[in-house]
Design a protein around this nucleic acid. Structure first.
Lengths: 138, 138
DNA sequence: GACACCGGTTCCCTCCAAGTAACTAACTGA
DNA sequence: TCAGTTAGTTACTTGGAGGGAACCGGTGTC
C-alpha cells in the first residue's frame, strides 16, 4: 500500500511518526502554524492575488470585493508578521502603500500550487462523495 | 521574477487569474473547500495518523490525546462525508469500528507532504520574521 | 464650504468552532 | 449485581473569527 505512493510521502510519514513519538506537542507543530495562517478565510486568496503582482491597498480591495476593510487590514498584518508579505509605504499625498510577496511568501507558491491543483482535480470526486453521504444519511 | 520559479506555479497562477475573471465566486472555490476541511484544528492530524495505518476509534483517541471525543466523532464524520475517510463497522460485541483513508484521502498525501515539508523547512524563517515584526511594532 | 480619495482604526455585534461533562446501548466477566 | 468495555450522542458554554458601520487626517477639487 505504501509502495503504491511516492517515496516523498513515505519520508514525510516517517518524519511524522518520529515527531509524535519524540515530541507529541501538537500546539508547537509547524504544520499547524502554517495551516492556521493559510487556513483562514482570506489569506490564501490574498497570497495568490499578490503572487500575480504587487497590489496597493485599494487594488486588493477591488480585486477581492467580498472582503471587509477590517479583515483586509488584519489579514495583511498577519501575513506581514509571519514574513509572507512585505509592506512598502510611499510618502506621497494621498499616501500609497504597496504590498508584495517576500521570498518566503513566494517559496510557499510551490507547495500551495500542488494543493490548488489537487483541489481542482478532485473537486468532482469530493462533491460526489458528499452527495452520496447525504443520500445515505437521510 | 516569474521566471525564477517553477513552471508548475505559473500554470496555477494563470488558472487562478482566469478563474477570478470568468467566475469570481469565492464561495464556490474548490481550494477554499479543501482548506475549510483540512484547515481546522484536527483534520490534518487525523489524516496523517490514518495514513500510517487504519485506526479504530479508541486508537485514534489514544493517538491524539488532546482531542475531545466530540471533536473526534465530528471530524471523522466530516472527513467521511467528503470522501477522505472510510468507516467500517464490525458487528462484534463490543462494537469495533475501523477508520482508514480512501483512495481520495491517500491521493491528498502528495500535495500535503509538500506543504508539511515546506512548513518544517521554513519554520525558523517564520519564527524569525514574527520576532522581528513584534520587536519593531512595540 | 462640501465632497471625494487613500489607507487605515475603532466599536459593536453575531455566529460557529471547539471544549466539558453527562448520558446511552449492548454485552462480558468477576 | 456491578463495574468495565466500545463507540458514540446530547446539552451547555465559551473564545475567537469575521462582518458592518462610523470615524480619522491630510489633500485636492468643484
Amino acid at each position: 500500500m505504501s509502495t503504491l505512493i511516492s517515496g516523498e510521502v513515505d519520508v514525510m510519514l516517517d518524519g511524522f511518526e518520529r515527531a509524535i513519538k519524540t515530541d507529541p506537542d501538537f500546539e508547537a507543530c509547524p504544520v499547524r502554524g502554517v495551516l492556521d495562517r493559510i487556513g483562514d478565510k482570506w489569506s490564501t486568496l490574498m497570497v495568490l492575488t499578490l503572487a500575480l503582482r504587487p497590489h496597493r491597498f485599494g487594488e486588493l480591495k477591488r480585486a477581492i470585493p467580498d472582503i471587509s476593510q477590517r479583515m483586509l487590514t488584519q489579514t495583511l498584518r498577519d501575513l506581514q508578521r509571519d514574513g509572507y508579505v512585505a509592506r512598502k509605504v510611499f510618502p506621497t499625498t494621498p499616501p500609497a502603500v504597496e504590498y508584495s510577496l517576500t521570498d518566503l511568501g513566494r517559496s510557499l507558491m510551490l507547495p500551495l500550487s500542488g494543493l490548488v491543483e489537487w483541489a481542482v482535480r478532485t473537486r468532482g470526486a469530493i462533491e460526489a462523495a458528499r452527495a452520496a453521504f447525504d443520500r445515505e444519511n437521510v
